[in-house]
């Protein structure tokens, strides 16, 4: 397993946001975290990245426990994180944003160059010298992913990657994730867009109120009307 999360708890102040969450993702696997608003998807991703402190449980990357490490150390071990709010560096140009993400290649993970990444997101190529604050919402989303890829991660955490993208770009994003998978990257993503998740993910975990309530292959999950109706809000 590339990533193993075992029974972690996470709190914001005194409020519990995760309650014994366990999950795993293998090499080259795309795993989706599903659930309603506030279910704990983002918190799970942040816990893996080390941006939210966990109080119990363990997190291991390629069998090495990383629970005690700071976020920057985890990133250098090969975890890449793309936050929901994108968090582009406003005053830095697109090229400089990419530069911040750059890390030396790591054995066992695909090595990216700026040229290869711009081939993946052609819309960014003409914007190389534009400051991040002057990009549209969707352009920022692409830049956020591109920036993280510059670190050559072996495990990519994507928080709602299809959010705010035009339909054509959602399709492009799905292709991009498929290509990342083909390169041997492990992807853990949170999604509310079931159609997108169904298209890109191999397996999924359904979260509700900070717990994993269901897991299985995407096909199994989609077939389970009950799980979908109750926890995923797909409605009538």
């Amino acid at each position: 397993m590339r990533l193993t999360v075992d029974a972690i708890d996470a709190y914001y102040g005194g409020a519990r946001a995760l309650d014994g969450v366990s999950l795993a993702a293998g090499v080259g696997e795309v795993v989706a975290l599903l659930g309603r608003n506030g279910a704990g998807k983002s918190t799970t991703l942040k816990s893996v990245m080390g941006l939210v402190a966990t109080r119990a449980g363990t997190i291991a990357l390629d069998g090495v426990a990383i629970g005690g490490l700071a976020a920057n150390a985890r990133a250098r071990m090969g975890i890449g994180y793309v936050p929901e709010e994108r968090r582009i560096f406003a005053g830095l140009t697109v090229a400089e944003n990419l530069e911040v993400g750059r890390q030396p290649p790591r054995p066992g993970a695909p090595a990216w160059t700026e040229a290869r990444i711009l081939a993946l997101f052609p819309a960014l190529a003409p914007l190389r010298h534009r400051p991040g604050e002057r990009l549209s919402g969707g352009e920022q989303q692409m830049l956020a992913i591109a920036r993280t890829l510059m670190g050559n991660p072996g495990l990519l955490l994507l928080d709602e990657p299809s959010e705010g993208l035009a339909p054509l770009l959602v399709a492009a994003m799905a292709d991009a994730v498929a290509r990342l998978k083909a390169e041997g990257l492990t992807v853990l993503l949170s999604e509310q867009n079931l159609r997108f998740a169904a298209r890109v993910a191999d397996r999924g975990y359904v979260l509700a109120r900070g717990r994993v309530v269901r897991d299985g292959t995407m096909a199994e999950l989609l077939a389970d009307r009950d799980a979908i109706g109750r926890h995923l809000s797909i409605g009538g």
Binding site: N72, A75, P83, R87, E96, N97, V100, G101, G151
Partner: peptide, 23 residues
């Protein structure tokens, strides 16, 4: 590169760290 990292950290320290920079 050092300068770029410094400016990035100025804008958003946590995100810079999440990209592997020892802030």
């Amino acid at each position: 590169r050092w300068g770029v990292l410094v400016r990035a950290a100025t804008a958003d320290r946590e995100m810079t760290a999440a990209l592997g920079v020892d802030e």
